Simulated assay, not measured.
Amino acid sequence: MRALLPLLSVVRGWRVGAAARPPRRVMSLYLTEERGLPHSEDYRLFFKSVAGHYISAFHDIPLKVDSPKNLFNMVVEIPRWTNAKMEISTEEPMNPIKQDVKSGKLRFIPNIFPHKGYIWNYGAFPQTWEDPYQKDKDTNCTGDNDPVDVCEIGSKVLSRGDVIQVKILGILALIDQDATDWKIITINVNDPEAEKFHDIDDVKKFKPGYLEATLNWFRLYKVPDGKPENKFAFNGEFKNKAFAIEVVNNAHECWKAMLMKKCDHGAISCTNVHVCDSPFRCSPEEARSLIESVPAPSMSKEVSKEEERWHFLD
């Protein structure tokens, strides 16, 4: 039904504590609300419906837009060429986007020559979950306890919090600390070149070198922090569209089981507004109350970002 709705022109609301930033007009079926300063531990980006009700970026945005055409919603966490490691907070009520923290420090991805930050628009598929208690039949590793990661390779630099429709093209299986961390290769359906891309071989044909750069990026991005190179299943081979869609559908089924309380969800917050029959479902008023109960941002200063430093690796 959502696929038949016309795109609505809405205002994205920006807030820092009680102070509002100038709104920016976007085309979307969702609103976002920003709290706290970017590049601070207080920063959160909450999602709302066009009616102004708070929703979960993880649970309330549907995965599938058009099943016969294999169109999916992607939540953009990190715009291309930026360094801040932003992610859907799976453990916080209503699952806002925040910056990852490691060892007490905000996390920024290093620039590895010749790349500046992330080399795609990076984000996640809502309503998917890589089950940490279930071994994958192909990789023989459990899931990484997060939504499935998405790399969007179109020509536009998107914005944090954008919800876009994408076509799945292929998949890479990163193995991170003995867990499967799938990376889905996609393209925005509204990209000027989207009609040329139907499967992973089209990426090789029309964007030569991009998949090799993607593999190399994921292999090396932790090395400047003193960690070893990352490893991959299938010797780093990109699998095709059909394989990728099967992985995404399986992750969607795992998410359904979690939202219906049929498996252990650990520390993940499953609170949602729109998932019918879910025992974790709450009313819009309860969702607002949950968010308003969170302490107000402290207005702490932005941290030093180290985004201009480059790393040259053999």
Rank of each mutant, 00 (worst) to 15 (best):
Y30A: 01
V11Q: 15
H39N: 08
R15E: 07
Y54W: 08
A51G: 15
A20S: 14
G13W: 11
G13D: 12
P23C: 05
R44D: 01
F47E: 01
S49C: 05
F46Y: 10
R35C: 01
V50R: 08
S49T: 10
H53K: 10
F46W: 05
T32E: 06
A51C: 14
I55C: 01
R35K: 09
E34C: 04
Y30G: 00
L45G: 01
P38S: 04
Y43K: 06
R12M: 11
M27E: 11
S56V: 04
R24F: 12
S40Q: 06
V50I: 14
P23Y: 05
T32C: 10
Y54A: 03
R15K: 12
K48E: 07
E41A: 14
A20Y: 13
R35T: 02
V26I: 14
I55Y: 00
H53F: 06
G13S: 15
R25L: 08
E41L: 10
R25I: 09
G36P: 14
I55G: 02
A19C: 06
L45D: 00
H53V: 04
S40N: 09
K48F: 06
A18T: 15
M27V: 12
R44M: 04
V50T: 15
S40T: 15
V16C: 13
R12E: 13
S40D: 07
R44H: 01
R44Y: 02
Y30F: 15
H39L: 00
P22W: 02
D42F: 01
W14C: 00
P23L: 06
H39D: 07
R21P: 07
V16A: 09
V50L: 08
S49H: 04
P23D: 10
A19N: 09
K48R: 14
F47T: 05
R25S: 09
I55M: 03
W14G: 02
V26G: 03
M27D: 08
Y43D: 00
R24G: 12
L31G: 05
E41W: 01
G17R: 02
R15W: 08
R12V: 12
Y54D: 01
S28E: 10
P22H: 02
